[in-house]
């Protein structure tokens, strides 16, 4: 092979790996599914860890952050407690995905992500914020059906915590093995029913002075009935 052909081959290879142009929304979709959007080496979450994108509920998923279908033109987020979409995204980006810096309004990645969110929002008519009821006062609740509790585990907890007993398949080392952690509660919270600690963690996530990176489950994302069933599944 002549040395003259080498540059030609390299050019062919290069042209094969990057298209001449790409819709920013397409790149934004990649970012949506990629945990590396956050520069934190400790982060395991991507946007789709907590959100779905379709208008209808997805079978087998109860996403903590709900669907992002139509999100670009909503009037508010977190039940209306935030009115700016980028600020709302940055709550997730810095508090759950551990990014040291928020996304900027004019960054390339940030703009691409926005274009994808617009693509998820076919109607440009303003829409109200989706309800997001924070359960502030934590209380115990009636237990539910174990089989339903197992479904709830698979639809909510499993994406991060993996298997409830072994943690197999969990999203990262930081996601606790739930059965092991619950066993520590009598020591950490003497005199408090472990179920109540689980309820608090589910309802408050990383907020209310708890810490970590878990998002909180609003009453809309997880009903008290399903949470009661989950407690039964966990043997609590």
């Amino acid at each position: 092979m002549s040395t003259l052909r080498l540059p030609l081959l390299a050019a062919l290879v290069l042209s094969g790996c990057r298209p001449a142009s790409m819709a920013a929304a397409h790149h934004g979709e990649r970012l949506f599914h990629d945990a590396r959007l956050s520069s934190s080496s400790f982060n395991s979450y991507s946007c789709d860890t907590c959100h779905t994108t379709s208008p209808e509920p997805e079978a087998g998923r109860l996403p903590v952050g709900g669907t992002l279908h139509g999100v670009a033109f909503r009037d508010g987020f977190f039940g209306g407690a935030e009115t700016d979409l980028l600020e709302a995204v940055n709550v997730c980006f810095t508090r759950f995905m551990r990014s040291p810096d928020p996304l900027s309004r004019d960054g390339v990645q940030s703009r691409a992500l926005y274009e994808y969110l617009v693509r998820l929002s076919p109607s440009r008519e303003p829409a109200p914020a989706r309800p997001f009821t924070v359960v502030r006062q934590v209380a115990d609740m009636p237990r539910g059906d174990r089989a339903r509790g197992e479904e709830v585990w698979r639809a909510t907890c499993q994406v991060c915590h993996g298997d409830a007993q072994t943690g197999q398949g969990r999203i990262g080392e930081d996601a606790v093995v739930v059965s092991e952690t619950v066993q520590t509660y009598p020591t950490t919270f003497p005199g408090v029913a472990p179920a109540l600690v689980v309820v608090e963690k589910v309802r408050h996530g990383r907020f209310f002075g708890i810490g970590g990176t878990m998002p909180p489950y609003s009453r809309e994302a997880l009903s008290d009935e399903d949470l009661g069933a989950l407690l039964t599944f966990l043997g609590l």
Partner: peptide, 8 residues
């Protein structure tokens, strides 16, 4: 980010 992203 690819170099030629098309923003709309």
């Amino acid at each position: 980010a690819p170099p030629d992203l098309v923003f709309s």
